[in-house]
Design a protein around this nucleic acid. Structure first.
Lengths: 123, 123
DNA sequence: CATAATACATACTTTGGGGTAAGTACTTGT
DNA sequence: ACAAGTACTTACCCCAAAGTATGTATTATG
């Protein structure tokens, strides 16, 4: 959870720029080292917690649920749990989450072009 | 400058995800609380250092040059200085920088729609 | 003589993101 | 009896990004 101090210039600025700058609004939602990766994996369909875990071996469980929670709070993914034991939890993209796809693909397209542009120089 | 330790898991992961995830590649370039704002202001044309400073009153001078430098290192903006006194320095978008515009506008479009979606509920 | 304006630089502190490691509850398989 | 799999939680540490504050060189202007 790691509660955040409401005061502090940091947070004040964060709030301001989120209001003022839509790009920052987006980044606060999909930023963080794991969120785009998680979103990417959910784009190919709903996944169980353990499936995501196996699909992203480098992520720790703490980071995984932490980001999944934030993504839920930001209404980008939805969680569905069957109340059985062993637990069965499925995460999937919400409508907002799905509508992010073109944004992410635009980023990917740019990244590929940009990377090519400079890797050729140094290669 | 704030040199970064080359070792450390943090950086290792950062490097990995930048290779593996194009989205992260983009975010490492336009992430940080001020970069998108700076880029936005440069999209309306080249600007002097002091113009940027006045256009973004909340930013400190340290943050401004720091990010301008990183944007230069990432080949997104170019710096042109006339060697006169008082100094006259102009920053403008590079080709890569300009090619980012559709990405940023895609983000903006999504942000506006997404924000509308939920502000209506709580309004 | 001192202040303003230009475009920075640099030392210092804070804090939130990310990482490590370990524990929880409940059941099935050996 | 105990290890393994499910989906988490919790306490703790580290560090890089962000912020605060001050200094620099030069010239013009009151």
């Amino acid at each position: 959870m790691t509660k955040i101090k409401e005061s502090s210039t940091r947070n004040y600025n964060k709030g301001l720029s989120e209001l003022a700058c839509p790009v920052t609004y987006v980044m606060n939602k999909i930023g963080g080292h794991w969120k785009p990766i998680i979103l990417y994996h959910l784009m190919s369909g709903p996944k169980r917690y353990s499936e995501l875990k196996r699909a992203i071996p480098a992520i720790t469980e703490k980071m995984l649920i932490q980001h999944l929670k934030q993504l839920q709070d930001d209404k980008l993914v939805t969680r569905k749990a069957k109340d059985v034991v062993p637990p069965y939890v499925v995460y999937s993209l919400s409508k907002s989450g799905e509508s992010l796809t073109p944004v992410l693909t635009a980023m990917v397209a740019w990244a590929v072009r940009d990377n090519k542009r400079y890797s050729q120089v140094s290669a």
